[in-house]
Amino acid sequence: MTGSPAKEANVVLAVAARDVLRLFRDWKNTVAFTVFFPVAFLGILAGTIGQNLGAGLGFDYLQFALLGMAACLLMMFTTMSVTLLVEERETGFTQEIFVSPTSRVSIFLGKILGGSVAGLISLPALFLVAFAIGVPITLTLIEVILLIAPVFCLMGGAFGVLLSGIFGTNPKAVDQATILTMFPQMFLSGAVVPIRSSSGALYVLVRVMPLTYLVDLVRGVFYQGTPTYGQIVLYNPLIDLTVALALSVVFLVAGMVLFVRGERNR
């Protein structure tokens, strides 16, 4: 370990590897967790909507929902994985990490990387459920999701860092904040239901949800050049990408500053 960048990269790798190792050690919970969400939200919720309301939309609703759920699940799993850092405060393990001579950025990047793996291993379950309910899964669809997955994970991780920074001294508050912020986003972002015609207060809420830009990005890329593009997509994918990256940077920086300040300035 000679150079500082090499050392920091090593820390990122170690922190991520630890999270992945824990996923496999705790495989029963991991499997239950990664299967539950696709079944509940794609299989049951989107399946019901698709069967009862999807016919008149003019596009394949279940495919639309699958793309939205992929963005949503990857963001949510990465967020939850990062906020575990606060939960570990109760076991004292967070102290071991934060008194080590390493950059806080590396620690959080490691958490995001580890959380991304947690998110990615949920994708096979999502595709399996999609296949079971008759969603047309094409190679292009899988390629588009995998191509944009790093952006989903970055945003999810950054959002987790922000929640950890705001509620860093209270593990229960972080848990509740994660649920209270992720579920409204799932509906308001258009992950499951179309939002293009939202108006009034909902119009504003739709546009302040970070997840909206991820869901719109993946659909924007997938439906590019198709006749249904104008019916489904809110913004040009480049705008979505810019907003998603900018929000990720803001969340990361603000979250890290708040977390470290909260950790030391009690």
């Binding site: 090593n10 170690a14 190792l21 824990r22 076991t91 001579p101």
Partner: peptide
């Protein structure tokens, strides 16, 4: 005062994680 070990890992994995954090050895 309170143990700061990861109980999901083995003892050696805890040590390996520690040396990587301190830059003593690559992970």
């Amino acid at each position: 005062q309170d143990p700061s070990l990861d109980e999901h890992l083995t003892a050696e994995e805890n040590v390996r994680f520690h040396v990587a954090l301190y830059g003593v050895y690559g992970y």
